[in-house]
Design a protein around this nucleic acid. Structure first.
Lengths: 222, 222
DNA sequence: GATTGATGTGTACACCGTTCACATCTATGT
DNA sequence: ACATAGATGTGAACGGTGTACACATCAATC
C-alpha cells in the first residue's frame, strides 16, 4: 500500500494527479494548453515521469478528454432531469430535447476549454461504437438518442421521422456551439447569444418533427 | 522593380511564396501543420525572413486562412450557380439553399485541412463585420444570407421566419461538417456520410421553413 | 555616387515532446 | 529476514518549434 506522502520518491497516485492537472490546464486553454512538461511541473515531478503512465501526449490528452466528456454528459443529464413535470407527455418530451440542446450549448460557452477537449475523442476510431465512453457513464450522444426515442413514445415525433434525427440535432447544436465558441457569435453580447441559441434549437426541433406546431396538449390517462 | 530571380539575396515576392507554401501545408495537416520553420525551409529562406512579412505565426496562419476561406466560398458559389433552371422560383430557391449546405459539407470532407483553416478566423474579432472577408470576394456567410433572402422573395420562406434563419442553417451544416471531419461520422463509409449529410440538410431546411412540405409548384408569370 | 530603408541571415534562447541509461523504492518469494 | 525483480521516478540529451537580436545585403533615392 502507498501512503501518498507527497515527498516520497514515488508519488503514490501520479496518474490521477496528472489527469487532474491536465483537466485544470485544459479548462482555460483547451487541448492545446495541455503540455506534458507543464503538467508534470505542476505536480512537482520530472517530465518523464508521465511516460510511465501514458504512452505519449496524445494518449494523455485522450484520457483527459474522457473526463471532460463526462462533465458534458453530466451537465446535460442534470438539465434534462430538471424538466418541469406539469407538461403533457408530448410537450414534455419536446422540452427535454430542447434542454439537451441548450445544455450542450451552454456547456460549450461556460467551459470552452473542456468543450473543445470533449470533442477531441475524434480519431479514436472506436470502430463500431459511436460515442459511448464506458458503461457506467452515459455519453452525451446516448442521452440524445434516448430523448428522441422518448419523443416517439410520447407521440411528439412520428416514427417515420425518427431515423437519423440524432444527426440533425447534434449537428445543429454542435455547430452553433462551435460558432459561439470559435466563430463570430463569440463577440456578441451574452443575451444575443442566448437568443440565437434558442432560435437554433427551435429550428432543430422543428426540423426533425417536420412542423413548427406544438402537439395539442392532451390530458394523460390515469 | 524586382526580377524574382530565385537565387538573388532578396527573394522578390517572399510574402506570396510563403502564403502559397502555407496553403499547401495546411491542405493536408490543417492549421497545426503550418510551421514557420517548415514554410521558410520549403521556400528556401531562413526562418526569420518570414517575420519581415508577418508579425508572428498567428498572423501568418490568419493570412493563409483567408485564402482557404476564399476557396470555400468559391466551392459554394460554383455549386449554387449550377442549379438547374427548370424549377419554379420557390423550389429553385430551396434547391439553392440545399446546394449551399451540401457544398459546405462536401468542401469540409474533400479539403479537411482547408476547412479547419477556414474556420480559424475566429478571434479576429472584426468588431461588427461578421464573416466578411474583403470586398471583392463574397464570404461564405454572405452567400447563405443572399440565398435565404431569395427564398423569401420567391415565397419559399415566410418573412416572419427569415430572421436568424442564417444561424440555424449555418449551425446545422457546420456542425455536421465538423462531425464528419473530426467526429464519429468520419469512420463511416462514404455513401453513408452522403445520406447523413442529405438528411441533415433537409432537416435544416424544414427547420427554417417551419414545414416539411414542398411549396406547390406554380407556373411563373411571363 | 553615398545613404537609407527594406529585406534576408546567423546565432541564440526558451520552450516543447520524447528517449536512454540510471536511481530509487515496493512488493514478492523464499 | 533478506535478496531480488518489477514498477516508478530522475537527469541528461536530441531534435523540433517560435521568435528576438545584431548584422549583412541589396534597391531605391537624394
Amino acid at each position: 500500500m502507498v501512503d501518498a506522502d507527497a515527498r516520497s520518491y514515488h508519488h503514490g497516485d501520479l496518474r490521477q494527479a496528472l489527469l487532474a492537472e491536465g483537466l485544470e490546464l485544459a479548462r482555460t486553454g483547451g487541448p492545446a494548453a495541455v503540455s506534458m512538461r507543464e503538467v508534470t511541473r505542476a505536480v512537482g515531478v520530472s517530465p518523464n515521469a508521465a511516460y510511465r503512465h501514458f504512452a505519449d501526449r496524445e494518449d494523455f490528452v485522450h484520457a483527459v478528454a474522457a473526463q471532460s466528456q463526462r462533465a458534458l454528459a453530466q451537465a446535460i443529464a442534470d438539465r434534462v432531469a430538471a424538466t418541469p413535470d406539469d407538461l403533457d407527455p408530448a410537450n414534455a418530451s419536446i422540452e427535454r430535447l430542447r434542454r439537451v440542446g441548450l445544455a450542450y450549448i451552454d456547456f460549450a460557452r461556460a467551459e470552452r476549454g473542456w468543450f473543445e477537449l470533449a470533442f477531441f475523442t475524434q480519431d479514436t476510431q472506436a470502430n463500431a461504437g459511436i460515442v459511448t465512453l464506458d458503461d457506467e457513464v452515459v455519453a452525451p450522444f446516448q442521452l440524445l438518442m434516448d430523448t428522441l426515442d422518448g419523443m416517439v413514445a410520447s407521440g411528439a415525433l412520428q416514427e417515420s421521422r425518427r431515423p437519423l434525427a440524432e444527426w440533425a440535432c447534434w449537428s445543429a447544436v454542435h455547430g452553433f456551439a462551435d460558432i459561439a465558441v470559435h466563430g463570430p457569435v463569440r463577440w456578441q453580447p451574452e443575451p444575443v447569444i442566448d437568443a440565437l441559441a434558442a432560435a437554433v434549437v427551435e429550428a432543430a426541433i422543428t426540423g426533425v418533427r417536420g412542423t413548427a406546431d406544438a402537439p395539442a396538449p392532451v390530458e394523460q390517462a390515469v
